[in-house]
Simulated assay, not measured.
Amino acid sequence: MIRIGAHMPTSYGFDKVPQLTVDSGGNTFQIFPHSPRMWKASLPSKKAADEFQVQMKKYEIPFEAAFCHCGYLINPASPKDDIWQKSVELLIIEGKICQSLGIPYLNIHPGSHTGAGEKEGIDRIVKAIDEFLKTVPDIVLLLENVSPKGGNIGYKMEQLAKIIELVAQPERIGVTYDTCHGFDAGYDITNKESVEKLFDEMESFLGLWRVKMIHLNDSKAPLGKPLDRHENIGKGFIGDRGFRNFLSFPQIQNIPWILETPNEEDLYTKEIAHVKSLIGLINVDR
Protein backbone atom coordinates (compact mmCIF):
# COMPACT_ATOMS: atom_id res chain seq x y z
CA MET A 1 0.00 0.00 0.00
CA ILE A 2 1.26 3.47 -0.90
CA ARG A 3 1.27 5.77 2.11
CA ILE A 4 1.67 9.48 1.52
CA GLY A 5 1.15 12.47 3.79
CA ALA A 6 2.86 15.53 5.14
CA HIS A 7 4.17 17.30 8.19
CA MET A 8 0.95 18.40 9.85
CA PRO A 9 0.33 21.25 12.32
CA THR A 10 -0.61 20.54 15.93
CA SER A 11 -1.84 24.06 16.63
CA TYR A 12 -5.43 22.76 16.52
CA GLY A 13 -4.56 19.99 18.95
CA PHE A 14 -3.03 16.54 18.55
CA ASP A 15 -6.51 15.04 18.19
CA LYS A 16 -7.21 17.05 15.02
CA VAL A 17 -4.20 15.67 13.14
CA PRO A 18 -5.80 12.41 11.88
CA GLN A 19 -8.77 14.24 10.34
CA LEU A 20 -6.57 16.97 8.83
CA THR A 21 -4.40 14.25 7.32
CA VAL A 22 -7.31 12.41 5.70
CA ASP A 23 -8.92 15.67 4.54
CA SER A 24 -5.68 16.56 2.74
CA GLY A 25 -5.70 13.24 0.91
CA GLY A 26 -3.10 11.62 3.13
CA ASN A 27 -2.92 8.39 5.10
CA THR A 28 0.30 9.02 7.06
CA PHE A 29 1.72 12.07 8.84
CA GLN A 30 4.56 13.59 10.79
CA ILE A 31 4.22 16.12 13.64
CA PHE A 32 6.38 18.00 16.09
CA PRO A 33 5.78 16.78 19.66
CA HIS A 34 6.11 20.41 20.89
CA SER A 35 7.12 23.84 19.61
CA PRO A 36 10.32 22.98 17.69
CA ARG A 37 12.13 26.24 18.46
CA MET A 38 11.80 25.96 22.24
CA TRP A 39 13.75 23.98 24.82
CA LYS A 40 10.62 23.59 26.90
CA ALA A 41 8.21 20.71 26.31
CA SER A 42 5.56 18.98 28.36
CA LEU A 43 3.50 15.82 28.13
CA PRO A 44 -0.03 16.07 26.76
CA SER A 45 -2.83 15.49 29.24
CA LYS A 46 -4.25 11.99 29.44
CA LYS A 47 -7.49 13.32 27.98
CA ALA A 48 -5.67 14.82 24.98
CA ALA A 49 -3.64 11.65 24.42
CA ASP A 50 -6.69 9.43 24.69
CA GLU A 51 -8.66 11.56 22.23
CA PHE A 52 -5.76 11.47 19.76
CA GLN A 53 -5.83 7.68 19.88
CA VAL A 54 -9.60 7.64 19.39
CA GLN A 55 -9.24 9.83 16.28
CA MET A 56 -6.44 7.65 14.90
CA LYS A 57 -8.80 4.68 15.00
CA LYS A 58 -11.73 6.68 13.65
CA TYR A 59 -9.75 7.80 10.59
CA GLU A 60 -8.10 4.41 10.19
CA ILE A 61 -4.51 5.59 10.35
CA PRO A 62 -2.30 2.90 11.87
CA PHE A 63 0.14 4.09 14.51
CA GLU A 64 2.99 2.63 12.44
CA ALA A 65 2.20 5.37 9.90
CA ALA A 66 2.60 8.18 12.47
CA PHE A 67 5.89 9.94 13.15
CA CYS A 68 7.24 12.64 15.43
CA HIS A 69 10.13 14.90 14.43
CA CYS A 70 12.41 16.26 17.13
CA GLY A 71 12.83 19.98 17.80
CA TYR A 72 15.29 22.15 15.88
CA LEU A 73 17.42 23.04 18.90
CA ILE A 74 18.47 19.48 19.71
CA ASN A 75 22.10 18.70 18.84
CA PRO A 76 23.26 15.30 20.13
CA ALA A 77 26.68 15.87 18.52
CA SER A 78 27.40 19.13 20.32
CA PRO A 79 30.83 19.35 21.97
CA LYS A 80 29.38 21.83 24.48
CA ASP A 81 28.33 19.97 27.60
CA ASP A 82 25.42 22.28 28.41
CA ILE A 83 23.92 22.06 24.90
CA TRP A 84 24.46 18.30 24.82
CA GLN A 85 22.78 17.82 28.21
CA LYS A 86 19.82 20.01 27.27
CA SER A 87 19.52 18.12 23.98
CA VAL A 88 19.40 14.74 25.71
CA GLU A 89 16.89 15.95 28.30
CA LEU A 90 14.59 17.38 25.63
CA LEU A 91 14.95 14.29 23.45
CA ILE A 92 13.84 12.15 26.39
CA ILE A 93 10.77 14.34 26.96
CA GLU A 94 9.92 14.10 23.27
CA GLY A 95 10.20 10.32 23.49
CA LYS A 96 7.80 10.30 26.42
CA ILE A 97 5.36 12.45 24.42
CA CYS A 98 5.54 9.84 21.65
CA GLN A 99 4.82 7.14 24.23
CA SER A 100 1.79 8.97 25.59
CA LEU A 101 0.35 9.44 22.07
CA GLY A 102 1.17 5.90 20.95
CA ILE A 103 3.47 7.10 18.16
CA PRO A 104 6.31 4.57 17.82
CA TYR A 105 8.86 6.66 15.89
CA LEU A 106 10.88 9.77 16.79
CA ASN A 107 12.92 11.25 13.93
CA ILE A 108 16.17 13.05 14.79
CA HIS A 109 18.98 14.77 12.95
CA PRO A 110 22.25 13.27 14.22
CA GLY A 111 23.58 16.78 14.75
CA SER A 112 26.64 18.92 14.06
CA HIS A 113 30.05 18.58 15.66
CA THR A 114 30.51 22.37 15.12
CA GLY A 115 34.21 21.99 14.43
CA ALA A 116 35.13 19.35 17.02
CA GLY A 117 35.52 16.67 14.33
CA GLU A 118 33.49 13.74 13.06
CA LYS A 119 34.82 11.15 15.53
CA GLU A 120 34.10 13.36 18.54
CA GLY A 121 30.65 14.14 17.13
CA ILE A 122 29.77 10.48 16.58
CA ASP A 123 30.94 9.60 20.09
CA ARG A 124 28.65 12.28 21.51
CA ILE A 125 25.70 11.13 19.36
CA VAL A 126 26.12 7.53 20.48
CA LYS A 127 26.29 8.58 24.13
CA ALA A 128 23.12 10.67 23.73
CA ILE A 129 21.23 7.88 21.96
CA ASP A 130 22.23 5.33 24.59
CA GLU A 131 20.97 7.65 27.32
CA PHE A 132 17.67 8.02 25.48
CA LEU A 133 17.22 4.31 24.80
CA LYS A 134 17.81 3.24 28.38
CA THR A 135 15.39 5.91 29.67
CA VAL A 136 12.57 5.67 27.11
CA PRO A 137 11.50 2.10 26.25
CA ASP A 138 9.79 0.99 23.05
CA ILE A 139 10.29 4.15 20.95
CA VAL A 140 12.35 3.69 17.79
CA LEU A 141 14.74 6.53 16.93
CA LEU A 142 15.00 7.34 13.23
CA LEU A 143 18.31 8.86 12.14
CA GLU A 144 17.72 11.24 9.24
CA ASN A 145 20.33 11.78 6.55
CA VAL A 146 21.35 15.44 6.46
CA SER A 147 22.90 18.01 4.15
CA PRO A 148 26.75 18.08 4.26
CA LYS A 149 27.11 21.54 5.74
CA GLY A 150 28.12 23.15 9.02
CA GLY A 151 29.78 20.12 10.59
CA ASN A 152 26.70 17.95 10.07
CA ILE A 153 27.06 14.23 10.66
CA GLY A 154 24.90 11.76 8.78
CA TYR A 155 25.12 12.90 5.18
CA LYS A 156 26.83 9.64 4.18
CA MET A 157 25.38 6.18 4.73
CA GLU A 158 28.59 5.02 6.38
CA GLN A 159 28.27 7.77 9.02
CA LEU A 160 24.76 6.60 9.90
CA ALA A 161 26.02 3.00 9.89
CA LYS A 162 28.84 3.89 12.30
CA ILE A 163 26.39 5.40 14.78
CA ILE A 164 24.13 2.34 14.58
CA GLU A 165 27.10 0.02 15.00
CA LEU A 166 28.19 1.74 18.22
CA VAL A 167 24.88 2.18 20.07
CA ALA A 168 23.89 -0.31 22.76
CA GLN A 169 20.51 -1.19 21.21
CA PRO A 170 20.94 -1.05 17.42
CA GLU A 171 17.65 -2.89 16.91
CA ARG A 172 15.85 0.27 18.08
CA ILE A 173 17.44 2.49 15.44
CA GLY A 174 15.85 3.12 12.07
CA VAL A 175 16.55 5.57 9.25
CA THR A 176 14.70 8.36 7.46
CA TYR A 177 15.83 9.21 3.93
CA ASP A 178 15.35 12.87 2.93
CA THR A 179 15.45 13.37 -0.84
CA CYS A 180 16.58 17.02 -0.67
CA HIS A 181 19.36 16.30 1.85
CA GLY A 182 20.45 13.30 -0.19
CA PHE A 183 20.52 15.39 -3.37
CA ASP A 184 22.68 17.95 -1.52
CA ALA A 185 25.08 15.12 -0.64
CA GLY A 186 25.34 13.92 -4.24
CA TYR A 187 22.76 11.12 -4.19
CA ASP A 188 21.03 11.53 -7.54
CA ILE A 189 17.52 10.06 -7.80
CA THR A 190 16.69 11.35 -11.27
CA ASN A 191 17.75 8.23 -13.17
CA LYS A 192 17.38 4.50 -12.69
CA GLU A 193 21.07 3.68 -12.33
CA SER A 194 21.65 6.26 -9.59
CA VAL A 195 18.65 5.09 -7.56
CA GLU A 196 19.84 1.49 -7.81
CA LYS A 197 23.26 2.64 -6.60
CA LEU A 198 21.64 4.48 -3.68
CA PHE A 199 19.63 1.41 -2.67
CA ASP A 200 22.72 -0.79 -2.95
CA GLU A 201 24.57 1.58 -0.62
CA MET A 202 21.68 1.64 1.84
CA GLU A 203 21.50 -2.15 1.81
CA SER A 204 25.24 -2.52 2.24
CA PHE A 205 25.67 -0.07 5.11
CA LEU A 206 22.28 -0.06 6.83
CA GLY A 207 19.93 -2.71 5.51
CA LEU A 208 16.94 -1.35 3.61
CA TRP A 209 14.67 -2.74 6.33
CA ARG A 210 15.84 0.09 8.61
CA VAL A 211 14.34 2.79 6.35
CA LYS A 212 11.00 3.58 8.00
CA MET A 213 10.17 6.96 6.46
CA ILE A 214 11.03 9.00 3.38
CA HIS A 215 10.91 12.79 3.44
CA LEU A 216 9.78 13.85 -0.03
CA ASN A 217 11.35 17.22 -0.77
CA ASP A 218 12.48 18.74 -4.03
CA SER A 219 15.68 20.81 -3.89
CA LYS A 220 16.29 24.48 -4.63
CA ALA A 221 19.97 23.63 -5.13
CA PRO A 222 21.56 21.55 -7.89
CA LEU A 223 23.01 18.10 -7.25
CA GLY A 224 25.90 18.14 -4.78
CA LYS A 225 25.42 21.71 -3.58
CA PRO A 226 24.73 21.63 0.19
CA LEU A 227 22.18 24.39 0.76
CA ASP A 228 19.43 22.37 2.50
CA ARG A 229 16.67 24.33 0.80
CA HIS A 230 13.48 22.35 0.33
CA GLU A 231 11.35 23.05 -2.72
CA ASN A 232 7.88 21.97 -3.79
CA ILE A 233 7.71 18.70 -5.70
CA GLY A 234 8.43 19.31 -9.37
CA LYS A 235 9.67 22.86 -8.93
CA GLY A 236 13.27 22.13 -7.99
CA PHE A 237 16.32 20.44 -9.48
CA ILE A 238 14.96 16.93 -8.86
CA GLY A 239 11.77 17.74 -10.73
CA ASP A 240 8.68 15.74 -11.60
CA ARG A 241 10.67 13.41 -13.84
CA GLY A 242 13.12 12.67 -11.03
CA PHE A 243 10.39 11.91 -8.51
CA ARG A 244 8.45 9.81 -11.00
CA ASN A 245 11.61 7.75 -11.43
CA PHE A 246 12.38 7.49 -7.71
CA LEU A 247 8.85 6.65 -6.60
CA SER A 248 8.47 3.92 -9.20
CA PHE A 249 10.86 1.63 -7.31
CA PRO A 250 9.06 -1.10 -5.33
CA GLN A 251 11.72 -0.94 -2.59
CA ILE A 252 10.15 2.26 -1.24
CA GLN A 253 6.47 1.73 -2.00
CA ASN A 254 5.79 0.22 1.42
CA ILE A 255 7.62 3.04 3.22
CA PRO A 256 5.56 6.12 4.21
CA TRP A 257 6.32 9.26 2.18
CA ILE A 258 6.12 12.56 4.08
CA LEU A 259 6.16 15.99 2.43
CA GLU A 260 8.15 18.74 4.15
CA THR A 261 7.94 21.24 1.32
CA PRO A 262 7.21 24.99 1.64
CA ASN A 263 3.50 24.48 1.06
CA GLU A 264 1.22 24.66 4.05
CA GLU A 265 -1.63 26.94 2.90
CA ASP A 266 -3.92 24.08 1.92
CA LEU A 267 -2.24 21.57 4.27
CA TYR A 268 -0.52 20.00 1.26
CA THR A 269 -3.77 18.92 -0.41
CA LYS A 270 -2.71 19.92 -3.94
CA GLU A 271 0.80 18.64 -3.52
CA ILE A 272 -0.31 15.25 -2.21
CA ALA A 273 -2.61 15.00 -5.24
CA HIS A 274 0.31 15.99 -7.46
CA VAL A 275 2.54 13.24 -6.07
CA LYS A 276 -0.26 10.72 -6.57
CA SER A 277 -0.55 11.84 -10.19
CA LEU A 278 3.17 11.22 -10.71
CA ILE A 279 2.74 7.56 -9.87
CA GLY A 280 -0.57 7.16 -11.65
CA LEU A 281 -2.75 7.11 -8.56
CA ILE A 282 -5.93 9.12 -8.39
CA ASN A 283 -7.09 7.61 -5.08
CA VAL A 284 -4.98 5.87 -2.48
CA ASP A 285 -6.72 3.39 -0.19
CA ARG A 286 -6.45 4.27 3.47
Rank of each mutant, 00 (worst) to 15 (best):
K235E: 13
M38A: 15
D228H: 01
V126L: 09
G224V: 08
L166N: 13
Q159I: 06
I83M: 08
L101H: 08
S11A: 15
E51H: 14
I97W: 07
M38F: 14
E203Y: 06
K162Y: 13
G239R: 03
E196G: 10
D188K: 00
T10L: 10
S147M: 04
I2E: 12
A168R: 12
V88H: 04
T190R: 15
E144S: 02
G182C: 01
R172F: 01
L247A: 02
I173F: 10
W257A: 03
H230Y: 05
P250T: 11
D188G: 02
W209K: 15
I255A: 05
L133K: 04
E89V: 07
G236S: 05
M38D: 15
H215W: 04
M1K: 11
H69R: 08
L20T: 08
P110S: 03
K156G: 05
D23P: 10
E64I: 09
M56G: 03
S87F: 04
L267C: 06
C68Q: 01
F29G: 01
V146P: 09
I129L: 13
R172G: 03
I189E: 01
D178P: 02
F63E: 14
E131N: 11
G234M: 05
D130R: 04
P9G: 05
P256K: 05
Q251A: 10
S42D: 09
L142E: 10
C70S: 15
W84F: 13
T261R: 05
F199Q: 05
E265D: 15
G115F: 03
K270I: 10
D228L: 03
G239V: 02
P170L: 07
I189C: 00
Q253P: 01
F246W: 03
Q30I: 09
D123E: 15
E118N: 12
G207R: 05
S35P: 09
Q55G: 05
V54Q: 09
M56F: 11
T179V: 04
L281P: 07
L133Q: 14
F29W: 08
M157N: 14
G95N: 08
V136W: 08
G174Q: 09
P76F: 12
D285T: 14
L223K: 03
P33M: 06
E171T: 09
A168P: 01
G111W: 02
K197T: 14
R229A: 00
P256D: 09
P76E: 05
Q55I: 07
W39V: 12
M38Y: 14
F205H: 15
E231L: 03
Q99P: 11
P44R: 03
P170A: 06
M157K: 12
E144A: 02
E158N: 13
G117P: 11
E165D: 15
L43M: 11
L278Q: 00
P250A: 09
G102Q: 07
